[in-house]
Nucleic acid binder design. Structure first.
Lengths: 343, 343
DNA sequence: ACCATTATTGACAGCGCTACCATCGGATTG
DNA sequence: CAATCCGATGGTAGCGCTGTCAATAATGGT
């Protein structure tokens, strides 16, 4: 029975209303605000919807209501597995809700970001999730003019456009370096790739922690604007060794680099952690499996994605969080690669 | 000047038409089929669009035209970095086109896939990209009823719904095993996680290659339905060693497992490749960086994403490829982990 | 020069839904 | 019991765009 109607062509809301014996507008309300209907009508509409296999026409809905049920997500990279985790959280949270996700990729270009935001504005999204806090002035203006909830993710800062969920990269790096220093290492190198704003803040944390111990030395720092890669970790480490042969520890801005360093050490017969400590960032799954296991800073990427969507949806539906900035923190995962005397 | 109009509110096509001195429908045609306009009108409309900062209302367009410019992409996982690469290709190809991507995640459930396809049907996408060739009968029926170009990706098979781009997982695994056997290894184990259809076909390739050499032994096979992970690679390898202590090689269905095996070998002081050969699948970036470097089967994931989108867009616009099935092949990347006597 | 044919253009009528406001009955109040 | 209010429901009028088809201008062939 269902089948026949479905096949015969489109079922409109009018048909549903007719079958349920209500006006189209009442049937419409069934979807947008079911609580406003009396129980009897609600049931009749519901069964009519089921019987006819009605599927709302989203375009018509958007046109008539001047709203969409799309949440835009702007991230800088699809390659970086960090964002894969965030996206998993985003999609997990959006499933089951009425909202769908529209993804856009800036490739780490703030101009591209501006362009994408302009595109999004034309689509009138119900909410928006953007990465980081370093938007251009124009981008911020667009965001503020959009008149929809916005969540900035990955890091937190002082002047949210609207809401934020993230953590302090500075603090995380500072904590990692403090741990290294506590273990007795003095000459800790810094390896950085793709120096985006968040990586830059990790560097600041490194620098300040080292300076606080009067151990900062520019020769210990090797960075590149190239995108990160395991191979690159080995290469940067080789550069670092050339500049500062006496290093006894390396802080890598991400785990790929750290793995590359570990492999390079194996190649050069450098004993980890005896001759060299290695600390990474993000705590990807392989860090615990490596031999020796690699210390890292765990970041709650999946939760970031989940919360970002939840916060946006809540705000869309009028339930604004009392705390617009959510700090998800980080955990220092101390493992063999930085504990020469055991953990 | 642009600014004032933009800010003042919505600019509709009517306004553009008025400024250009043409009828609204002519202005509309400027977007859908500019070649149908005379040069003078085209130029007038174009400059009016620019001057007013006109942005089309997609909802109205979709409602009036009964079409959208959305390409649906259905993949089984966001975690698996294999799909991250595919998605990169997908997004790269779609940028610059008029089409936008709508992503959906089945979590390896063909029932979820069915549900998602039903959702997509309601949205009338312009094209669709789905993963694999193992859809349910119902899913196939939906796909066929959708009346839009469909590309199946990741693998190829005999009865495409419409188009296909992928490679033979069977052949790839067969080639990998042939290489291992050529190197003189006899007892090659098989490690498999998340035995989805494509992984199953890799197993078939392994099994047949081993059988052809009269070396197949069920004790050499360890699989699990758990999702893949580096740690899991180590665990599965431990199981395998327990079942068959005399193995001299391991074929892993993906690179994460292979890396886990390598680490486990380091832990157990098993020399690779002298005591054990390791071969992975996909050729993620770290495989070349590992010590020893790890042999793998390179699959062209980024290109798969790119081609899938290109093929779908071409088909939407009436340029159907003469060859609906595109085999992107694979490359065996022979490295230290499987060449005891040097490469 | 005339007619057939093709390139351009425009008028009209919706697409399917919801915003807005009006209505109506019943509960609440003094 | 009238006045008031509120919750539930319906009528009307578009949202901004494009499909369809008719009208017109331009072109070419004889």
């Amino acid at each position: 029975m269902v089948r026949k109607q479905t096949r015969s062509g489109k079922v409109r809301l009018t048909e549903v209303a007719k079958l349920a014996g209500v006006s189209p507008i009442t049937a419409s309300r069934f979807f947008r605000n079911p609580d406003a209907l009396s129980l009897s009508k609600r049931e009749r509409v519901e069964s009519a919807v089921k019987e006819l296999g009605y599927v709302p026409n989203l375009a018509a809905r958007a046109l008539a209501s001047h709203r969409t049920e799309v949440i835009g997500v702007v991230i800088p990279s699809l390659t970086n597995s960090v964002f894969a985790d965030v996206l998993r959280g985003v999609y997990d949270s959006s499933e089951g809700s009425r909202y769908s996700i529209q993804l856009a990729n800036t490739r780490y270009s703030i101009l591209q970001e501006e362009r994408l935001l302009r595109l999004f504005r034309a689509q009138k999204p119900a909410g928006l999730i953007v990465t980081g806090i370093n938007q251009t002035a124009e981008s911020r203006a667009i965001l503020e003019s959009m008149n929809c909830p916005v969540t900035q993710i990955m890091e937190i800062g002082d002047s949210p456009v609207d809401m934020m969920v993230g953590f302090s990269h500075y603090d995380a790096a500072f904590a990692a370096i403090s741990h290294i220093l506590e273990q007795g290492y003095r000459r800790t190198g810094f390896l950085g790739a793709r120096m985006d704003p968040r990586v830059q803040r990790r560097f600041d944390g490194y620098r300040d922690a080292m300076k606080a111990a009067f151990l900062f030395d520019p020769n210990l720092v090797v960075t590149t604007s190239m995108p990160t890669a395991v191979t690159l970790g080995g290469a940067l480490f080789a550069d670092l060794l050339a500049k500062a042969p006496d290093i006894d520890a390396v802080f890598c801005v991400n785990d790929d680099l750290a793995l590359g360093v570990l492999f390079e050490c194996q190649r050069r017969q450098i004993s980890v952690p005896r001759d060299l400590a290695i600390v990474g960032f993000n705590d990807l799954e392989f860090m615990a499996a490596a031999v020796p296991s690699l210390t890292s800073v765990r970041t709650n990427r999946y939760e970031m994605g989940r919360h970002a969507v939840t916060m946006v949806i809540d705000a869309i539906e009028g339930r604004r969080p009392e705390q617009p900035v959510l700090d998800l923190g980080f955990q220092l995962m101390v493992r063999e690669s930085s504990t020469p005397h055991g953990a």
